[in-house]
Amino acid sequence: MLTAVGSLTVLGITLGTLLGIAAKYLAVQGDALEAELEGLLPGSNCGQCGFAGCKAAAAALAAGNAQVTLCPPGGRAVAATLAAKMGHAFDAGGTAEAEPLVAFVHEGRCIGCSRCIQKCSSDGIVGAPKQIHTVLSDACHGCGKCVSECPTEGIEMMPIPVTLATWHWHKPAPQAIDTRAKAEA
C-alpha cells in the first residue's frame, strides 16, 4: 500500500520537475503570429470587419475571436492566406465572393464640399473646395464611407467594369458537355 502510493508520488514529482525544467529551456518567444497576420490583411483600415483597423482585426484573429472570412475587401484570396498562416483548412465553397465595388461620383450632384475626401483612408478621391470631385478607382478599396458622408447622395458604389485587359475565360462547366456543340459565349 505504502509502496504503491509512495512510488506513484515519487514518479509524479520526478516527471513534473523534469517537465518544468524542459519548459524553461524550450520556451517559445512571444507570438509573432499577430504581426504576420496583420501583414496579410489589406492595411487600409476600412473597418468593414467591425474592428478598429487591421491591427485590431489581426489581434482578434490571433486570439481566435474572429473568423478568417472577416475581411470583405480582401475577399477569398486573403481569407485563404490567413487560413494557411494559421494552419487551418479553408473551405472556399461555403463563402460567396462579394463582387468588388468602387465608388463613383455623379458629377451632376457634386457640390465640392470635400467631406468625402476627409473620410477616404487611401486618398482615393481628388478634388478641391467648390470643384467637382472624382474617384480614382485604382485607389478605391470599396469601404463605402464616402457614400454615407456625401450630403447630396452624389456617390454610388458600382461594380468594376470588365475590359479587354481584365477579361478571362470562365471555368468550364462540370457537367458533361459536347465539345463539338455550338460554342457558348
Binding site: P42, G43, S44, N45, P73, G74, G75, A77, V78, P100, S121, S122, D123, G124, D138, A139, H141, T166, W167, H168, W169, H170, K171, P172
Partner: peptide, 28 residues
C-alpha cells in the same frame, strides 16, 4: 486558360491591395 486568367486577376488584385496599403500608410 481559365486558370491563367484567374491567376493574373489574383496578381492584379494583390498589386492593388499593396498599392492601397501604401496609400493608406502615407495618408496616415
Amino acid at each position: 486558360n481559365y486558370a491563367k486568367g484567374r491567376l493574373s486577376a489574383q496578381e492584379r488584385e494583390q498589386r492593388k491591395r499593396d498599392r492601397i496599403k501604401r496609400l493608406a500608410v502615407a495618408r496616415a
